[in-house]
Every structure is written in C-alpha cells, then in structure tokens.
C-alpha cells in the first residue's frame, strides 16, 4: 500500500486499538496516518480479560504496563466450562521423571485424589487479568501519543479486525477476522496479538519480496489458526470428538497412551495448558511412561507432598 495513504483499522474497540497501537509502535509507516474505525464491542467495559504472559511483555514494550492499570496477576485463564488452563508448570520432575507421570502413579497406586491442576507451581507467571474498559482506555491514550486517531476520513486501505465486516475489501485481516473464534476474549486477544506480530514482521519487506512476505504471513496465520482451533475443539467439545483435526487426534492418542504432549510446529499453547485441557475433557492417560517405575512409592509419596500447593506456597 502507498505509505502516505491513511490506513483504517476496523474492528471492535479492543481488537482495533490494540492492532493500531502495535502497528504504530512497531511498524512505523513512514508518515502514513493510522485511524481506527470502531465496530460493535465484543466485551462489556467491566468484563475482565486475561492477558497471557507474552502479551503482557508486548504491552510493556508499547508503553502500557498492565500493573499500573490495576491488573491482577493470574496463574491461569479459564475455558468455557471454567476449565483452568495454567501458565505455570505442574509440580517438579524428580530424577528425570515428569511430575505428570509421578502424579498418575500416585493416583493409581497411592490413592492420590487431588487434581493435577492443584499442583500448579506457585509464583509469578507474568500473566494478568484486567478490566476491558480500562485496557481500551489505556490503549487509546497511547494511540494518541503515537499519532493514531479515531477514523475521520474515507480510506482505501483497510486492516480488518472484525469478522462481520463483509462489504470491505481489506488489504489484510488480523485476529478474529482471520478465523472463527469461540466467545473467549482471551483467545480473541491472543489471535489479534499473534497475527499483528506476524503482520509487523512481514510489513516492511523490500518491494521485490512481497510474495515471500505474503506467503510467510499466511504460513504463520495458518499455524496460529490450527493451534487455536484445536484448543477450541477441546474446550468446547462437550465430549464430542467429531470436530477434532487429525493433528489433535494424534495428540490425544499420544496423551492417552503415553502421557506426553506430542510436540507440533508453531504451538500457541504450553504443554501444561494442553494437559489441563485434555484432563478437563476427561482424557486421562492409561500409561505415563515406564520411567516412573524407577522411583519407589515412598519417593513418589514424598515428592507429591513437597509439590503440594501448601508446601510450595510456604517456600
């Protein structure tokens, strides 16, 4: 797009102002004006949104420190059925054996009744929860400082962040306009954040590399989409597996048979988030690695106790 033309970012206040500030801060367009056209809000101002740790880091880089806006540190984000998806790991390994394997054996042979989630390591995760209204207001304040304005003039160049905008011909799409998202502001913001970072990375390439840039942008979006869709399928499935992609089916199978999270390219979530999501879908491993049998039951019992939340909190 010609760099002197105004660029309009169209989307809900949350999506559009975050997109605009990130673009203005990280991809200065050599004088091009950025303006925001707000569409319907997707969250109420008093709703609370969870920012993942990597999003908090991006926010600090754009000059917005959530702590100063009264954001509360959080250990996890919540799925639609109040599933708790933690940012920190579960317990600690012992002699090279993962805590999950230890917990499974404790459950089977020592009658351990506490859930795996109750062993989430204490300590700061970097993630936080913030009121939507405050967050959007802070984004607008920064936007003003970096020259982004509310939309005042017609523009031929559009970055679309709203999936319902059908009549526009956007130059590119980000966030919820890229994929079908379930009603979760956390996932929605994650999609905006990841897609705008990809856009920034690909934005300023030399003119003769435009095709390469477009291919790379598409590759990243597809990777993001695959990962988020898998997580949505798990969290919203209500036990149905029809919506599972082949990749998710493979991961479920490895989890159930081996107790491991199969690594995949460009995963947007941590292994502990997948474990929590699997367990919340009642997908429990039938085996958790044979190495756990190199530990005695006494070692397992002691270790589970040292990793219990109370003990960790005291440390």
């Amino acid at each position: 797009m010609a760099q002197q033309d105004p660029v309009t970012i169209v989307g809900s206040p949350l999506d559009a102002w975050l997109t605009a500030v990130m673009l203005a801060r990280f991809a200065p367009l050599a004088g091009a004006k950025l303006q925001v056209l707000e569409t319907s809000p997707v969250a109420r101002v008093d709703d609370v949104v969870v920012l993942r740790p990597e999003m908090v880091r991006t926010n600090v880089s754009i000059g917005l420190d959530p702590k100063r806006l009264g954001a509360q540190p959080v250990q996890a984000w919540a799925g639609p059925h109040r599933q708790s998806l933690p940012f920190n790991s579960f317990g600690r390994p012992l002699k090279g054996v993962s805590f999950v394997a230890i917990w499974l054996r404790a459950r089977e042979e020592l009658g351990e009744t506490r859930s795996l989630q109750s062993f989430v390591s204490a300590g700061q995760t970097g993630g936080c929860a913030i009121e939507v209204g405050r967050y959007v207001q802070a984004l607008k304040t920064i936007a003003t400082k970096v020259g982004v304005t509310p939309c005042t003039q017609a523009s031929e160049h559009i970055v679309q962040a709203d999936p319902n905008l059908t009549e526009a011909q956007p130059d590119c799409s980000v966030g919820a306009a890229v994929m079908t998202l379930r009603p979760s502001t956390t996932l929605r913001l994650q999609a905006v954040h990841k897609s705008v970072l990809a856009l920034i990375d690909c934005w300023s390439w030399r003119e003769n590399d435009r095709d390469l840039a477009a291919r790379e942008y598409d590759r990243r979006l597809q990777a993001m989409q695959a990962s988020i869709e898998d997580m949505q399928a798990l969290l919203w499935s209500d036990g149905r597996t029809d919506d599972y992609s082949s990749r998710l089916k493979h991961r479920v199978s490895v989890w159930q048979n081996v107790g491991r999270i199969a690594p995949v390219d460009d995963d947007q979530f941590t292994p502990q988030e997948w474990m929590a999501a699997f367990l919340s879908a009642e997908l429990v491993p039938s085996a958790a690695g044979r190495l756990v049998h190199s530990l005695t039951l006494a070692e397992i019992s002691d270790h589970v106790e040292t990793c219990s939340p109370k003990e960790v909190a005291n440390v």
Binding site: W205, D209, R220, D265
Partner: peptide, 9 residues
C-alpha cells in the same frame, strides 16, 4: 530478506 526466522518444534 528480512532477518526473520521461524524454528520448527
């Protein structure tokens, strides 16, 4: 082209 890099899992 851009110093951009992605790392496979």
């Amino acid at each position: 082209s851009s110093g951009s890099f992605f790392r496979y899992e």
